Computed example of a mutant assay.
Amino acid sequence: MAQHVRDIMTSRLVTVEPQTSVTAAAQKMRDEDIGIVLVCEGDELRGVVSDRDLVIRSLAEGGDQEKRTVASACSADLFTLTPDEDLDTAVQMMREHAVRRIPVVDQGHPVGIVSIGDLAIERDPRSALGGISAAEPNE
């Protein structure tokens, strides 16, 4: 059984710069079949923007989405895990902050993302969430 975040995190990162339009970020999420992108300047993590952030902080506000940047839709509180932290810490952080995904950083640089689905697959693969998380995405 995995013990550390590094054992279950997704290491394929999708990033955008803060000045990227929310439309471009949404298209990237669609094309990559993901629900979150990391907002980076160079290799420094500056924030995250999720599909929900785009709806609540951008689309619902109206206006020209091509002119609105991901910087305006980012989650205000940025918290992260390190690859060496144990999985209980990840669970506790997700509960405390009511989030489904947390960026993983090593010496300040993003190296992965751990999701509630990753934890469900590891901890209880026969659960409904574990099964859904392990399934192929809908087309």
Rank of each mutant, 00 (worst) to 15 (best):
M1E: 15
A2F: 13
Q3T: 03
H4M: 05
H4W: 12
M9Y: 02
S11Q: 14
R12P: 03
R12K: 10
L13V: 07
V14P: 05
P18F: 01
Q19I: 04
Q19T: 09
T20A: 02
V22T: 05
A24M: 04
Q27L: 13
Q27E: 14
R30K: 13
R30T: 06
E32L: 05
E32T: 03
I34D: 09
I34Q: 14
G35M: 01
V39S: 05
C40T: 15
C40D: 13
E41H: 11
R46P: 00
R46Y: 04
R46H: 12
G47A: 13
V48I: 15
V49K: 06
S50D: 14
D51R: 08
R52L: 10
R52A: 04
D53V: 04
L54C: 07
V55N: 01
R57F: 08
E61S: 12
G62R: 04
Q65M: 10
Q65Y: 01
T69P: 03
T69R: 13
V70W: 08
V70P: 13
C74M: 15
C74E: 14
C74T: 15
S75D: 07
A76S: 12
D77E: 11
L78F: 02
F79L: 05
P83N: 02
E85I: 06
A90G: 06
M94W: 01
E96V: 03
R101H: 09
I102F: 08
P103A: 09
P103D: 03
P103M: 11
V105D: 13
G108F: 12
G108T: 07
P110T: 02
V111D: 13
G112Q: 07
S115P: 05
S115L: 09
I116Q: 11
G117K: 05
I121V: 14
I121R: 10
E122H: 08
R123P: 05
D124M: 10
R126G: 01
R126A: 12
S127A: 08
A128N: 02
G130T: 02
G130D: 04
G130R: 06
G130M: 04
A134W: 06
A135G: 02
E136C: 01
P137E: 06
N138G: 00
